[in-house]
Computed example of a mutant assay.
Amino acid sequence: MHGGALTGWLLMALCAVSGGYCLLRTRAGTPRERRTARSEALMGFGMAAMAVPAAVLSPPDWAWAVYAVLFGAAALRALRPALRGGHHLHHLVGSLAMVYMAGAMAPAVTGNGGGGHAGHGAGAGAGGIPLLTGALLVYYAFYVLGSAGRLLPGTVAVPAGGAAPASRALGGFGGASDGLSELTTACRLTMGLGMFAMLLTL
């Protein structure tokens, strides 16, 4: 990646931890919540694999085709739920973005023979479509800002002579029941930042 091996390691670690947390979420919740957690775990681990520095592991040329097929299937799976709106639309965009990045990096791989992660490096610009890359960067920039905004403490109006609700005590965050939601949002924020960083390398 443009930021060097350290940036790649940090991005890989963040995405792997996010994917691991999402995998834990698949063990509880409603069927829809577990399905969402599985999709996010796949995204986190896929991004972590793509972020491994080339000096450590250069995947074979066919690995990018595997990424494209895997996330293409994930996009098809998310298509029907995405038509109903909600977070599944974001999963569809994310899966399609992964297919796009895999396809954009594949020509760079065959062109320089330096291994899959060379697509994240100095020769990455050969495969990307600037307009599409820019549109995805704008999307993820707004997504990250929106996720960060949901993590900020809210302002709660306190009735005259009353006390603030207990769930908004301690800095404005919710109680134990809201903790999972905030951690999930933080996980999604991390993966959004990771996707933004990876798109920048195109």
Rank of each mutant, 00 (worst) to 15 (best):
A141G: 13
G29W: 00
R168L: 01
L145E: 05
L96C: 11
G86E: 10
A82W: 09
L96I: 01
A176K: 13
P31T: 00
G127F: 07
G85F: 07
P60E: 12
V69M: 12
F196A: 08
A126Q: 10
L136I: 03
G161Y: 02
G111A: 15
W9A: 12
H90F: 12
T110S: 15
G179V: 06
G103S: 05
W9F: 15
A41P: 12
G29M: 05
A97G: 05
A169Q: 07
M101T: 09
Y67R: 00
V144L: 14
P130K: 03
A124T: 11
L145F: 12
R150E: 14
R150M: 13
G127K: 06
L202V: 04
L70E: 08
S18I: 04
G162C: 05
G154T: 03
R27L: 15
D61M: 03
R32H: 06
D61C: 05
I129D: 12
Y67A: 02
A55N: 04
T26C: 15
F173P: 02
A49C: 06
L180W: 07
W64Q: 11
A51Y: 02
L83G: 07
A160C: 02
L183N: 00
G128N: 05
S58G: 04
G29K: 05
W9L: 14
A73S: 15
L189G: 01
M101Y: 06
L180F: 07
A28I: 05
W64I: 00
G116M: 03
L170M: 05
V156E: 15
G128R: 08
V66F: 14
L170G: 02
Y21A: 09
A176D: 04
M1C: 00
G154A: 11
V56D: 03
V52I: 15
G111P: 04
G172V: 00
G72F: 01
G116T: 03
A73K: 11
R80F: 14
W64K: 02
R32W: 05
M195L: 14
L132M: 08
D178E: 15
L193F: 04
L131K: 08
A55C: 11
A41K: 03
G127D: 09
G4L: 03
T155K: 07
A122I: 01
L10D: 02
A48F: 04
M12P: 01
R168N: 01
Y21H: 06
L11P: 02
R35H: 06
G19A: 07
N112W: 12
L14T: 14
V66M: 15
A73G: 12
T190D: 11
T133D: 10
A65T: 09
T201E: 10
G119I: 07
A97W: 05
P60H: 06
A104L: 07
